[in-house]
Design a binder for these strands. Sequence first.
DNA 1: GTCTATACTTGGATAGAC
DNA 2: GTCTATCCAAGTATAGAC
Lengths: 218, 218
Amino acid sequence: MASSGVRRTISTERPRSGETRQVLVVAATSALRDVGFAGASAREIARRAGCNQSQVFYHFGSVVELLLAALDEVSASRMAAYRSVLDQATTLTGLVESAQTILTEDLDSGYVTVLVEMISGAQSVPGLGDQVAQRLVPWKAFAEEAVKRALGAAPLGPLVPAGEAAHAIVAGLLGLELLANLDGDRTQAIALFGRARMLVGLLELTGALPGMSAPGQP
Amino acid sequence: MASSGVRRTISTERPRSGETRQVLVVAATSALRDVGFAGASAREIARRAGCNQSQVFYHFGSVVELLLAALDEVSASRMAAYRSVLDQATTLTGLVESAQTILTEDLDSGYVTVLVEMISGAQSVPGLGDQVAQRLVPWKAFAEEAVKRALGAAPLGPLVPAGEAAHAIVAGLLGLELLANLDGDRTQAIALFGRARMLVGLLELTGALPGMSAPGQP
DNA sequence: GTCTATACTTGGATAGAC
DNA sequence: GTCTATCCAAGTATAGAC
């Protein structure tokens, strides 16, 4: 051994290094989406991951820790997508269009559901609320930045503080997801995205909304 | 016996008729609010009600049925309050002011949390989603009526279909509650209510919003 | 790292005494 | 109607073999 010079074959050989861990995270995500927080047990998740229930505890210590890891991953992946959209947008209409696309994607994939279930489930587990709240901070900050850039030098910008608007936007999305999941019907949420797009276009025409400010300069 | 002529003393004497049932409903409400759907077990609820766990099944057949009964009661009581506000309002500003008061009340009492927990918890129990969705129908209808009366003959009314607006409002409130419960901080939600009130006042001044239409005539 | 087996806990639900 | 006792299912978590 050790002839090939590849480190991973030397001594700490890991048959499927980190693979199960990752599979469990994916399974946890799908469980949160399909059967909710109350249904996302170690056994349910392991079943979806195709491995034994004990792996949950070996890799994550507890079910809640695994669920938080799933939230982290979804959050990071989605944040990257949104960040990219925001940074590439040059016009407000363009931004809203891109946002609509990515938002619909979220709705279809159930990514926001993961967050919603963790928030509502946090009520049942002492201490979980803080953990989830921490992970929401970057999203609030992101929404605030987006609002600042979108409103930019808008004449009635001061009427709507970015912080408040960001809170409203996050709340609105969570609520839409909640309702969409309830009846498995996303058309109403999607219709609202379209409506927002239309209204923004209209406001832009009237001159109430100027162009966007550049990235990094809210 | 049967001398007094009062029916309830004849034969089917019920020591504390219907009392436990009602206490259980109240306990279920508080459990949903404090420990969420996942924590609202028969034992937890019975503990709060000060009775034995078996009473849940005697009176309601199952935990879920009890939770639905709690949702029904909260829903009916709150609907009456909102209905009264809407019917008594004559000006839009007055309506928004009253709505702010009652909404803050909901936030403080955690009534909306009951709904939020039932919606998110519905993911875990097959068939529960439909039950909860049914109970949401009157609220959507109510919100739609409110929007119609508020926008009334507004010049830009056609730009915002009442159905869509109602959906957005319900979603927004649910989302605000979700966030408020997470960090136990209702100030941001309350600030938004104040902001809405200010904006409506402003729009009324500019003439973009006319007076309200009368009750029953959206 | 992964599995089996197992200990322990909690929860849903029912039977039967009062 | 209410309680005690009890059964059974499901869940968390750990120990130990491979």
